[in-house]
Lab assay of single mutants.
Amino acid sequence: GSKLPPGWEKRMSRSSGRVYYFNHITNASQWERPSG
């Protein structure tokens, strides 16, 4: 298991139950796992 880039964390969408990734530094969110 590799770590996520700085700022990123795994989140669960309440509406759909899907996992997404959220960056608390930039407030960005995306479905794809961030690389870096």
Rank of each mutant, 00 (worst) to 15 (best):
W8P: 01
L4S: 03
N27A: 08
M12G: 03
S15R: 14
K3H: 12
S29Q: 09
K3R: 12
G1D: 15
G17W: 01
S2Y: 13
V19G: 03
S29D: 02
G7K: 01
Y21A: 00
S35L: 13
Y21D: 01
G7T: 02
R11C: 15
P34Y: 01
S16G: 09
Y21R: 00
V19C: 15
E9D: 05
M12F: 15
T26S: 07
E32I: 05
W31I: 08
L4D: 08
Y21F: 06
R14Y: 08
I25H: 11
A28T: 15
F22H: 09
S2M: 11
K10E: 14
K3Y: 13
S16F: 06
S35T: 14
K10G: 05
G7W: 05
S16E: 08
G1N: 15
A28N: 10
K10V: 15
Y21I: 00
R11S: 03
S29V: 15
N27P: 00
N23G: 00
K3N: 13
S35Q: 11
W31K: 08
A28K: 15
K3V: 13
S16V: 07
Y20W: 06
K10Y: 06
T26R: 02
H24A: 12
S15W: 07
P5W: 04
R14N: 10
M12A: 08
W8S: 00
H24V: 15
G1E: 15
V19N: 05
E9A: 05
S16M: 09
G36M: 14
R11M: 07
W31R: 08
G1L: 09
P5F: 02
P6W: 11
S15M: 08
K10P: 09
E9H: 10
G17T: 03
W31T: 07
P34K: 00
G17Q: 07
P34I: 01
P6Q: 08
N23K: 00
T26I: 04
V19I: 14
Y21M: 00
K3I: 10
T26N: 05
E32L: 06
R33N: 10
S13M: 11
E9G: 06
R11L: 07
G7P: 08
W8M: 00
V19A: 08
G7C: 09
R14P: 14
Q30W: 04
L4M: 05
M12S: 07
A28W: 08
R14I: 12
E9F: 05
R14H: 11
L4V: 04
R18T: 07
R33K: 10
S2D: 15
Y21Q: 00
S16P: 05
S29N: 05
N23I: 03
W31S: 08
P5K: 02
M12L: 13
P34F: 01
H24N: 13
Y20I: 04
S15Y: 09
P5S: 03
K10I: 15
A28S: 11
A28D: 07
P6N: 08
S15E: 11
R33I: 11
V19P: 10
R18S: 04
K10S: 09
S13I: 12
L4T: 02
H24G: 07
H24F: 14
G36E: 14
S15F: 08
Y21V: 00
G17A: 05
S15Q: 11
S13Q: 12
G1M: 08
Y20R: 02
Q30E: 03
G17F: 03
S2H: 13
F22I: 06
R33Q: 09
S29Y: 14
S13T: 10
F22S: 01
I25G: 05
K10A: 13
Y20S: 01
R11T: 02
G36R: 11
Q30A: 04
P5N: 02
I25V: 10
R18L: 10
H24K: 12
G1F: 04
S35G: 13
L4A: 03
P6Y: 12
S16D: 12
G36H: 11
E32V: 06
K10W: 05
M12D: 05
A28L: 14
S16Y: 07
W31L: 09
G7S: 03
G36Y: 14
E32W: 09
K3A: 14
N27H: 14
E32A: 07
R18M: 08
N23W: 01
V19T: 10
N23A: 01
K10Q: 14
W31G: 05
G36W: 14
N23V: 00
W8D: 00
F22M: 02
R14K: 14
T26V: 03
W8L: 00
L4G: 03
Y20N: 01
N27F: 08
E9I: 10
Y20V: 02
R11F: 04
E32Y: 07
W8K: 00
M12K: 11
N23Q: 02
W31A: 08
Y20K: 01
G36V: 13
S15V: 14
R14F: 06
G1A: 12
G1R: 10
L4Y: 04
W8E: 00
P6K: 07
R33S: 06
P34D: 01
W31N: 06
R33A: 11
S29M: 15
S2R: 11
